[in-house]
Amino acid sequence: MIAPEKEEEAGCKDETMSPDVPGQTSASIVLSPEELDRLSSERPLVSDFKRMKLEKEAQKNWDLFYKRNTTNFFKDRHWTTREFEELRACRKFESQRLVLLEAGCGVGNCIFPLLEDDLNIFVYACDFSPRAVEFVKKNPLYCPERCCAFQCDLTKDDLRENVPEGSVDVVTLIFVLSAIHPEKMKLALQNISRVLKPEGIVLFRDYGLYDHAMLRFKACSKLRENFYVRQDGTRSYFFSKEILAELFEEAGFQPVANDYVLRETVNKKEGLCVPRVFLQSKFNKTSQLQSS
């Protein structure tokens, strides 16, 4: 089952992570000759019919994921304020209320630690899965005065129906864009741009090229270059920093920071140590997209 690889904080309780290794990129990941040959020679084996079916049923598959795992799969993300100082530093004055959009909020593993830690923050939180949004609303920490959760397909539902245009200071996009079909990623970023303030910032973290989860996939799981389907029907894309930068720039953003983070997942029980590659980036909005 590949699902426990969905992010670095998922799955087994006996796994520990090494500290981030600054200054290293995916070029530091040494692949074996066999791995290089396999990646270069693999051709997608998934039929066009199955690819279209997976796209059509994407929401259902994520809803089933949350039905099976409820709120127990991902750990709370207490690391966001450490990794992204903008969550504090982007205020122009100390008493300013920060308005944040968590795009792809899941069951609230990011937003609730932020709401507990920062009393002067308002969070809009959306997710593809209606079930995930219901879990957010049922959380004892959910308060409509400080948080507004709603279901949204970032690739087609206009965020402005729930979030005022140009009202958001910061967008967090954490392990979300990789689940979207590559041809629709730009649509999601343009949608996000419409609710960001001028010079607003997107804080991004997701799977990097040659992450261990990517190397575990077989050819029968490959949908297209760097894009794979898991056994549960959910999908994941693995980004190079060059492709990510190009994607954001085409959507009207300018890179502030964009680099790989290397970590190791250690499973003491199994005696395993595997390399993880994530991409951590920050992008400023540079142009106001026309309203449509």
Rank of each mutant, 00 (worst) to 15 (best):
M1F: 12
P4Q: 07
S18Y: 11
T25W: 07
I29V: 15
E35N: 06
L36F: 02
L36P: 00
K50S: 01
L54S: 04
L54T: 06
E55F: 01
E55Y: 02
K60Q: 14
L64S: 11
T70K: 14
T71S: 12
F74P: 03
H78W: 13
R82N: 11
F84S: 04
L100M: 14
E102M: 02
G108F: 08
G108E: 08
I111E: 05
L114H: 07
D117V: 02
Y124M: 05
C126L: 09
F128Q: 07
E134C: 05
E134Q: 15
V136A: 00
K138M: 10
Y142I: 05
L159W: 05
R160N: 09
N162G: 02
S167R: 10
D169G: 00
S178M: 06
A179N: 14
I180S: 11
K186M: 10
A188R: 09
A188H: 02
Q190T: 05
V195Q: 00
K197Y: 03
A219L: 01
F227K: 00
F227V: 04
R235L: 02
Y237N: 08
I243W: 08
I243G: 06
L244Y: 07
G252Y: 09
Q254K: 12
A257R: 15
V261R: 15
R263A: 05
K268P: 02
G271L: 13
V277G: 00
K282M: 15
F283M: 07
T286Q: 13
L289G: 15
